[in-house]
């Protein structure tokens, strides 16, 4: 079945990102298609490559990136939510005159329309948040 996932919280502060990650892995293992994982609200913080979690802890962002590479996952960070919170890719950084970008590999920044499209295209949408 074609599924979509919405992640509304950042990693570490709340379990939602971990739950979404475990759910996504389980769905892929069962042979389902993940049409898209959309990151909204503080969920956009999943998409920064600058996090340095302790070595004995999991690296949530890296796990998303690895999953994206392995399964060709579409990880979309909401542009409006990302701009508020300082998550930028190279073109967004340039456009807003910022001196750095921080988007992690496998993530892309796009509009909220991508969430609505996921709701239309996927047969089920599963929301993880606070």
């Amino acid at each position: 079945m074609k599924l979509a996932v919405l992640v509304n919280e950042g990693p570490y502060q709340h379990q939602a990102a971990d739950s979404a990650l475990q759910f996504t892995k389980a769905a892929l293992e069962k042979g389902h298609e993940i049409f898209r994982v959309f990151f909204y609200h503080d969920g956009v913080h999943n998409g920064t490559r600058l996090g340095v979690p302790p070595q004995d802890d999991r690296n949530v962002t890296q796990q998303w990136s690895e999953l994206a590479e392995k399964h060709n996952l579409d990880l979309v960070v909401c542009v409006a939510a990302a701009q508020r919170r300082g998550i930028l890719d190279a073109s967004e950084a340039k456009r807003h005159g910022k001196d750095a970008d921080n988007i992690a590999p496998g993530f892309r920044i796009s509009g909220l329309g991508q969430l609505i499209e996921a709701g239309i295209q996927a047969e089920r949408l599963v929301v993880f948040g606070d």
Binding site: F23, A26, K30, R124
Partner: peptide, 12 residues
């Protein structure tokens, strides 16, 4: 478990 969570999603 998570596998059954996925099944619950698809079955509803």
């Amino acid at each position: 478990d998570y596998a059954a969570f996925v099944d619950l999603v698809t079955e509803h």
